[in-house]
Nucleic acid binder design. Structure first.
Lengths: 269, 269
DNA sequence: CTCAATTTGTTCGTATGTATG
DNA sequence: ACATACATACGAACAAATTGA
């Protein structure tokens, strides 16, 4: 058994999907350039060590995604304008976290069974006396890219209730007077979509996601903002400045600077 | 067709794998506690809307992973000590980036076709006159968790060649005298393992990975350190301090504070 | 101890999907 | 396009272990 075959074997995902994901990656990484003719079926069979039909299944999948087109007698070509990844740049500092989302309009969702209070881990402060729970889906060009589950301290929400329903909470929070923020942090892990997240984000169950937890703590050590955010993995990019002045900053073309208008449906807190 | 069935359908991954990934997530998120009896097969069939055999296939998979054990007549139980994720905390600032890796011993790999120079994007500085290329795999308790592809400016490498072979490059770089670092940054995106990465990290082809690019730029605007690092997605956690003093820091139990000793094999630069 | 209820384990037949040559 | 083999998924029935009445 070849080494490649053993590597295929480590995943129980169908072979043609594995081949497709390698090819998809090559296109997205730019190893295969737009308009370029890719290897012939025969070369691909040899490279991936699979049957011709299996390569064709993979190609068919990518063709449906608009990444390839085939022409009998000529070959298989990368699309001239393969659908681009819209990288949503996640920030690692307070200022650049607020900037790209401040004009965004979340679509609030009805919540049937709102959890009464957030579960706070060590370093996440003390619980506030009362929270309201907001759930929203973030859209960019009618494509969902994140689900936000937010516990917001009631006393904070009451300062500007309508603003918190119409705008992303973090910029509203930052603009509130008479509120001292002592600390804010965010953690990120890579997870997989559960059925509900998969449904809302229009991805497959188990498809990779970026799971963020963002906590804001006030001067009294109370967690006033506790958000669990699930992003589609294919539209997030994280930029960290490690040392020195900010440069190599995210390009202005990416990130949802202008948000699509969203419908606001019923809300229960 | 039910909503759930449509969500299943969005992924062409076998159904039992999708069910398994949802169950695995519940265990890892703590929704199902160690030792606890989970729902009966019949309840699971109804919940996931799949046949009994399909639930059993998913359960069998998780049993092999050591997350579950079953007992005829009694039920199915979460393992008392389910294998834990060892979160490797990635840093978002210079100091905490160096701390956890400084004692690590990378296993250097032979490189057959070293790329002559890194491809530098905008904001990544000017290329150095010459680079050496190092590839290594990082291990923790004999489990690989990352692949490092590093372009290091030759003039920097020459200051302490042996140190760069025996230790992670970044701490060595930081300890060098007569070198002024002007800027350093890192970006992270979520990707999928190509066959080579899958082989080295012992994961499936297409399995999610964290792809980091770390660039260090000196006082002359020259990129002296350009690393592409691929982490297994299941062992990284990112902690970002957004505002205020550092707190809620990663627990000391996680992260590879003490590195496993690694063999150093042949190296070609 | 036996009985019944519960729950996992096994097997059949059938249909469809995946993969090869 | 065809023949072949194996994996996936379904529903249903039956077997075997455990529990408590």
């Amino acid at each position: 058994m070849s080494k490649l075959a053993r590597t295929y074997d480590r995943s129980r995902v169908p072979l043609y999907l594995q081949v497709a994901s390698v090819m998809r990656r090559r296109i997205e990484a730019g190893h295969w350039q737009p308009g370029q003719k890719i290897s012939t079926l025969e070369e691909l069979e040899r490279e991936f060590e699979v049957a011709r039909v299996t390569v064709r299944q993979a190609i068919e999948l990518l063709r449906e995604e608009g990444l390839l087109h085939c022409q009998q007698g000529r070959g298989t070509f990368i699309a001239d304008d393969p659908p681009r990844r819209r990288w949503l740049t996640l920030a690692t500092d307070w200022a650049s976290l607020l900037e790209p989302i401040k004009d965004n309009v979340p679509r609030l969702m009805k919540v049937d069974d709102p959890p009464p209070a957030p579960e706070l881990g060590p370093g996440e402060g003390r619980p506030a006396p009362d929270y309201i729970f907001l759930r929203s889906v973030q859209f960019k060009e009618d494509e969902p890219y994140a689900i936000v589950n937010l516990h917001l301290a009631r006393e904070v929400y009451d300062k500007a209730p309508q603003d918190f329903l119409d705008h992303p909470a973090l910029p509203v929070l930052a603009s509130l007077g008479g509120l001292r923020i002592k600390h804010a942090h965010q953690t990120l892990v890579i997870g997989g979509a559960d059925p509900e997240a998969a449904d809302l984000l229009r991805i497959g169950i188990g498809a990779p996601t970026a799971e963020c937890r963002c906590v804001v703590i006030d001067e009294h050590d109370v967690a006033i903002y506790v958000a669990d955010i699930t992003y589609r993995s294919d539209c997030v990019k994280l930029h960290m400045n490690l040392f020195g002045s900010a440069r190599g900053k995210p390009r202005t073309s990416s990130g949802p600077r202008k948000a699509a208008a969203g419908e606001v449906s019923t809300l229960r807190a």
